[in-house]
């Protein structure tokens, strides 16, 4: 085994591991088979598992996710790809009204063990309709689990947990992280959904991050160390279940909280997280909570403009220094 693997290859590896162990796992999506995915995140799957397990679909987002739902209700474990997460809007009925509700509204008569995988986020200059971080769209609806890994080994471990989950999971693969490399996941590696990971220990401030903002937080923490500020970095890894306990435990030590989100400040997941901390962890705090999130504008095309909207290392470092001085 190579000593590093890209996040991109880890996606295909994570799916392939589950397809090997469970014949009910099948994949469907646009260009995922012979073309091996627009982002090359399904490389090798058609070759290894054949056309009965890996299905190329028409451009029919509702049919893709709706069919995955019907298959999940009848004994399969489908993994549906929505090419860009922005396109979740084209099948949002399934995300908002169907998949998360059907078990509940039938009084528990059916289960929906499916995964919707999608390439999420900005930083690549794809403009307003192909760059959004939309985890908050999904987070707004009770009844869906949400995974958003930041490292290659978490991609594999969370993919295993997502596919094995009897609950529906929306799995965000960050476009900006696809080329990043990390150690390959150990054989049988599974990361339980809803367990945050402490990426760096620190004493002065807790930085809570997700997916693309994890490397931003780590870079900022490195710079902050140079300024004499010791930052702890927590990678939530999942939004549902949300590991509030890990955040509160960190605050017992640091008493300062900064949440770093790529989705817009308006309606972003950090709003929910910090409201729980304000409710249940107020006594732990020695300073106001800071949320650093994308500006509330559509994403612009030009790199220089996009960098204005999505929080980067400079902005994070600056805001944390302000807070540390509080």
């Amino acid at each position: 085994m190579a000593d590093v693997i890209t996040y991109r290859d880890a996606v295909a590896e994570g799916i392939a591991r589950e397809m090997r162990r469970d014949p009910s796992v099948v994949c469907l999506g646009e260009d995922i088979g012979a073309a091996e995915g627009v982002f090359k995140t399904t490389v090798g799957l058609l070759k290894e598992f054949g056309p009965d397990r890996v299905w190329d679909t028409p451009i029919s987002e509702q049919a893709i996710v709706g069919a995955a739902m019907g298959a999940a209700m009848t004994g399969m474990r489908p993994v549906a790809e929505i090419m860009f997460s922005d396109f979740l809007a084209c099948c949002y009925d399934y995300i908002a009204n169907e998949i998360p509700k059907v078990r509940y509204m039938t009084g528990g008569q059916v289960t929906v063990p499916l995964v919707v995988r999608t390439a999420n986020g900005g930083g690549l200059g794809f403009g307003a309709q192909h760059s959004q971080a939309v985890e908050n769209w999904v987070f707004a609806v009770p009844g869906l689990k949400i995974a958003a890994p930041s490292t290659s080994d978490d991609v594999v471990g969370l993919m295993a947990a997502a596919i094995r989950s009897d609950d529906p999971v929306v799995f965000f693969e960050h476009k900006g992280l696809l080329a990043t490399k990390g150690p390959p996941a150990a054989e049988g590696h599974v990361v339980e959904l809803g367990r945050a990971r402490t990426m760096r220990d620190g004493d002065d401030v807790t930085l809570v991050a997700l997916a693309s903002t994890v490397p931003v937080a780590l870079d900022a923490a490195e710079r902050l160390a140079g300024e004499g500020v010791s930052a702890e970095v927590i990678d939530l890894r999942c939004l549902v279940p949300l590991d509030v306990a890990a955040v509160l435990a960190s605050l017992e030590k640091t008493s300062r909280l900064v949440v770093i989100e790529e989705n817009p400040y308006q309606g972003g997941w950090g709003g929910t997280l910090v409201s729980v901390v304000a409710d249940e962890g107020f006594d732990l705090l020695d300073a106001p909570i800071k949320r650093i999130a994308a500006a509330c504008v559509p994403l612009p095309f030009a790199d220089a403009l996009e960098a204005q909207v999505i929080p980067g290392v400079d902005a994070v470092t600056e805001r944390v220094l302000e807070l540390a001085a509080y």
């Binding site: 019907g70 209700m73 399969m76 009204n97």
Partner: peptide
């Protein structure tokens, strides 16, 4: 909304 689900159930029947 349920037409794609029926398609998926039929797909599942075929796969199984």
């Amino acid at each position: 909304s349920h037409l794609p689900m029926a398609v998926g159930a039929a797909w599942s029947a075929r796969l199984r």
